[in-house]
Design a protein around this nucleic acid. Structure first.
Lengths: 355, 355
DNA sequence: GAGCGTACTGCACACGTGTGCAACCATTAT
DNA sequence: ATAATGGTTGCACACGTGTGCAGTACGCTC
């Protein structure tokens, strides 16, 4: 049996098609197609016979041909800035965990945080006729969004970084302002009055919102924000490398400006701040409290464990993919923009001021 | 101009095809096809006219139809155990960095470290007629490898975990034994004589090889390995979560067995060991040295920074993808199995014994 | 002006799958 | 015995692209 099947499959270099099965069974390829798709038009006997034959000949349906005829490919494209970024690794993991059981395969590509590259990748997805696209941390601004509109494909953005609320775009993101407020209110509750913020420029939207939340929390507590408490790193590349350096380089100036606590754009920046404190022998959290954002796995393993604002990264990927599934099926999705609540995670890097 | 093009593209819900262009230009679709592919058969004037028309109508070639006719899809499939695992994130990043410029799109799927799931994903890739497959940390053993052989697709394994050196399989991996020896020799050179090993069961091949290198290094220094110095965690799920717990739970028994240093299967296990030491107030590295494996980004940010064995993860992904490119083009690749040298990275978690 | 060559274009088929419609066969009812 | 009915099956086309081959038109040469 194994011998006969192997000798049969060896007959051609290309895979067996329904035509091959049809020839072997002495029927037309239409009959084979219907038999394999459980059409009621086919008699049970021939169906069984053909299915057995297909099994024996090692038939695997050609998804390319099926896509061409059906007008759907059952694929989605995902664009991230960097695959190695732990934030997006979690998001993609969530996306994949929903897409795979739904029968959709996912194309993954990196944009390297470059809008031109991002458009190029999207163009490739369009050529491949993906059924939908997920853009993570998209930099596509108002100037290029028209090109997206021409592609008649559902698009869901996750943590998008450009301000262009066009009607055909859907999105899921965490409430950055609320998250920042949580972090800063926590520090204020501990007794801090001199609180800094370390930001970045290459994720403009979330950075601005977190800065806004930071300022709101200060004002709500009767503290007037000071310019010298805020430092922003000019970054252009992809995330993980530069972020740590940013925190490491910018903390000292804030420290000299008299802060007793610092809220950082994200966890990697906070790690950099932690390293800077260690270099300068500033005890954390005794002399300086540090708060991050994102709650990546790393935060549990550094010392002291990092107090941070949790983003449900995997869940965001799952929700985004579920929204996309709905859109692909032609259903309306509402609300078009999902904003998830952040959550404060208190660990060891924050304490009352001790200066 | 923008108006005319939008009105034209609005005419149908489906994308414009070369037939639409042909109709608009008053030629046959063959002429359009040739014009767009720069065939010398087409006169420069008609070529220019057709290209302009295609541009104006917003034509994007249908990769599905091209794949069907060409018999190639210009796609590759990548299977990893978990996308969220930082090790594979780096590998996939390397794969993608080679595939994208080469015009190949990559399908990414998770196997969750389950051989059945892995075969299922491979089956999907086969249905989609990918040109090649990359298997990371594959668990496909000798029993299932025959099913792979029937798929006439080039396969490259990265850090494969099953022993089945079949002729059609290519691979790239780091030299686990040499890496383990580097780590243990480093500890011995520091003066340690009581050295433990914490292993895992769900990555059997590399675990066995690292254990072997550990034992070899001990014997080469005249130290007889003791059974109580070796502990192995029974794990089944995906990596990042369990590994830390494994290190955390197994270090104490080794400590009580009198070790002054421990070599861990990988960095996450080592992090767990670090956490256990902190819980028990065992100073690292003064009382207990800790060495990891992989050199993931995390190791630079924990305290103390982790001494570890570097694996060129991104490079491994790139080399694997380059091998696959060669195979896809029909060229022979030699050697079939690339074994890369590891590198010892000395940081702050190792020091002379102080007990 | 006939013959020839060159430059260009269209016809028809291929790739693998799915499906509307017609045709066939067998069984049953009249 | 003939017609009607219902159950199966095949023909032919579609999806979008690429290409071998035949065919057309034109210009050149003898």
């Amino acid at each position: 049996m194994a011998k006969s099947s192997s000798s049969k499959s060896k007959s051609g270099d290309t895979a067996v098609s329904i035509k091959d099965i049809a020839r072997a069974a002495g029927v037309s390829h239409s009959t084979v197609s219907r038999a394999l798709r459980d059409s009621p038009l086919i008699s049970p006997q021939t169906r069984a016979r053909i299915r057995a034959l297909a099994e024996e000949m090692g038939y695997t349906p050609d998804a390319i041909a099926q896509s061409l005829q059906a007008g759907r490919t059952f694929t989605v494209g995902v664009v991230v800035t960097s695959i190695a970024d732990p934030f997006f690794a979690d998001v993609v993991d969530g996306v994949e965990s929903v897409a795979r059981p739904a029968g959709l395969s996912v194309f993954l590509n990196a944009s390297l945080n470059d809008p031109d590259q991002e458009l190029l990748v999207i163009e490739t997805f369009h050529r491949r006729r993906v059924d939908g696209i997920i853009l993570a941390a998209s930099r596509i601004g108002t100037e290029h969004v028209e090109r997206l509109a021409k592609i008649r494909v559902p698009i869901v953005q996750v943590s998008n970084q450009a301000e262009s609320d066009r009607d055909f775009l859907h999105s899921v993101a965490v409430d950055d302002r609320a998250g920042a407020r949580l972090a800063v209110e926590h520090l204020i509750a501990l007794g801090h009055r001199h609180i800094g913020y370390i930001g970045v420029t290459n994720r403009p939207r979330s950075n601005r919102r977190r800065l806004l939340g930071y300022q709101e929390a200060l004002r709500a507590a009767g503290i007037e924000p000071r310019e010298k408490w805020v430092r922003t790193a000019q970054l252009h590349g992809v995330a993980p490398e530069g972020d740590v350096q940013a925190g490491q380089m910018l903390l000292p100036t804030l420290w000299e400006a008299g802060i007793t606590a610092v809220f950082c754009y994200n966890d990697m920046v906070a790690i950099g701040a932690l390293l800077a404190c260690r270099e300068r022998a500033i005890p954390v959290p005794e002399a300086c409290s540090v708060v991050g954002f994102d709650n990546i796995a790393l935060t549990r393993y550094v010392f002291p464990p990092l107090t941070t604002v949790h983003q449900p990264k995997r869940t965001m990927g799952q929700i985004g993919m579920k929204m996309l599934l709905e859109l692909v099926e032609g259903r309306e999705v509402s609300p078009k923009h999902r904003v998830l609540p952040p959550e404060l995670i208190v660990r060891g890097s924050t304490a009352p001021p001790g200066r």
